[in-house]
Design a protein around this nucleic acid. Sequence first.
DNA 1: GTTTCAATCTGAAACGTTTCAATCCGTAGG
DNA 2: CCTACGGATTGAAACGTTTCAGATTGAAAC
Lengths: 335, 335
Amino acid sequence: MVSIKDVAAHAGVSPGTVSNVLNRPGKVATATRERVEAAIKELGFVRHGSASTLRAGHSRTIGLSVIDIGNPFFTEVAAGAEDVASELGYAVILGNSAGSEEKEGRNLRVLAEQRVRGVLITPSGEDPARLDRLRERGISVVLVDHPAHRPDQCAVAVDDVAGGRAAVAHLLAGGARDLAYVTGPLTIRQCVERREGAAAALRSAGFDPDGLRVLEMATMTARAGEKAGADLLDAGLPDAVFCANDLLALGVLRSLLRAGVRVPDDVALIGYDDIDFAAASAVSLSSMRQPTYQLGRIATELLLDECDNPETHAHQHIMFQPELVARESTRCPAA
Amino acid sequence: MVSIKDVAAHAGVSPGTVSNVLNRPGKVATATRERVEAAIKELGFVRHGSASTLRAGHSRTIGLSVIDIGNPFFTEVAAGAEDVASELGYAVILGNSAGSEEKEGRNLRVLAEQRVRGVLITPSGEDPARLDRLRERGISVVLVDHPAHRPDQCAVAVDDVAGGRAAVAHLLAGGARDLAYVTGPLTIRQCVERREGAAAALRSAGFDPDGLRVLEMATMTARAGEKAGADLLDAGLPDAVFCANDLLALGVLRSLLRAGVRVPDDVALIGYDDIDFAAASAVSLSSMRQPTYQLGRIATELLLDECDNPETHAHQHIMFQPELVARESTRCPAA
DNA sequence: GTTTCAATCTGAAACGTTTCAATCCGTAGG
DNA sequence: CCTACGGATTGAAACGTTTCAGATTGAAAC
């Protein structure tokens, strides 16, 4: 395997100079630089990232830990992150926690071993301690789709309380009175806050927030949604259903349609995330849109800025507002 | 930062012994091992992956290069790969080529720098040379959703010719005669082979394979599918449309429905991949199912077997058969 | 002709781990 | 009691890069 020494010998310079060509090309005389570059090309030299990381004390990789890689929401976040990272020559190590804090912990451990420069994470629980432990090791952390745990930290989030409020206000405006909330585990912050928003909407419309039926599913998948739909059919249908994400909503929709329930006439339905497929479903799905791809991009830009310009970097807490997208699955208030 | 030496000092042993505890615990006396493990825990030691990689000559990371991380097909592959890798303590570095060979090349370069143990790749073009270059560097390569370039290589694929044939045979059995094929770039092997299968089906049914109208789109997304649908509406509708993947099909479906075209009565439609959302679309989508998650799992198992047991490893070329899933979007032949 | 200075380049040390030949120790066999 | 042996442990070398103090230029200033 050809090393920096071979390149140096071939170009008639010292290893230090080759390193400079690689890392600070401006500090090397043009003629020398070109000679070294020619040698690199000729020998097919590829820098050994681990040696570089070991000596320099930092790597050019970042970690991305998401809750469910099967959810198009996270896929878009990942796409945004990967684009930015790739532009700046960083590699992205992917970790899928699959909703399990234990697996998330294992993934974070691997990231720590790899000495990633920083970590983008949508935490699957509410334990800031393990993230603080990363920070102690000098690994920057940016929270994605989650508000900051602490002031000296970047975070990019979307206002989930506002989203829940808007979704339920929309259902109420459509005439619904008996509401159900189909959610994932209430250990997940997003699920809790969207419920709070829903309760707030009920309260300000003069209804009892405790009247909201809550179905807590173990996962936030279409399959879980189908199960929730079946449960609703068994227990008696509400006027309207608010789902904590679109996957759940698509599952509920499927169950209802299969049972001959008309959406939105018998039951109105709204999801969350506005994934691409929401618009294409059997009855097109109303949803709360979030700037997903941007979430990934901006989080990565913040992270790499924090890593590359620690002295000038200013921590930011960015909070986007979600946007209601009304489609067929909810009665239009005007009708 | 606490190193192996600190652990060694704290446990009263030599660094070599700590290394053995980490890598060959069986070779260390129980009492010593426990003492070292206690020291590790107490000091919060985390092994420096780069130092380990540098000295040992190989890392515990693999690369995954896909064509479109936004496509649920690849997401499922990634989920399968990540599960296996994570079980065996490997980290997965994600690369999204976004259909660009140039970006794929850049990603492979990063993977080479990181000295990944191996690479899982769905190549976006037909240039085996760059993969051979990885192999020369000692990086194993397993092809995913692509037949092997060479015998001494593992590959996990699905029979795309058979899939194309089955899809079009199904459309013909439903009574269609004037067919269109909506595809991604014909530089992508899958697109080409599915077309070949389509042509073969036409031929064996006694039709002219050149009668197949081909619409080649630049990307394989729902947006491109909408565009294709619009093009078909302009140019005159066929009896049936075969799409090279489900995203294209969902886009076409959307265009057609919006224009008031009835599916399948006016135009039958079949996609490919059977992503989760195919069953949930406005008119549920017929498709060709592939064992996607398994593709990722098995490819990763083969890759890691090749890395960890090079002497006993037998290269395998696995070819799955796709399966027709008939839904509403195609006329049932019996009807 | 000497001094100064900046620009450029050199070479050895250091990063934290793994590896392996060498050493140590206790026990079984003679 | 001596020898042999195997298991357990040691310690130094090596992996390929980066860093940095110092060496070497050649030109400018006096």
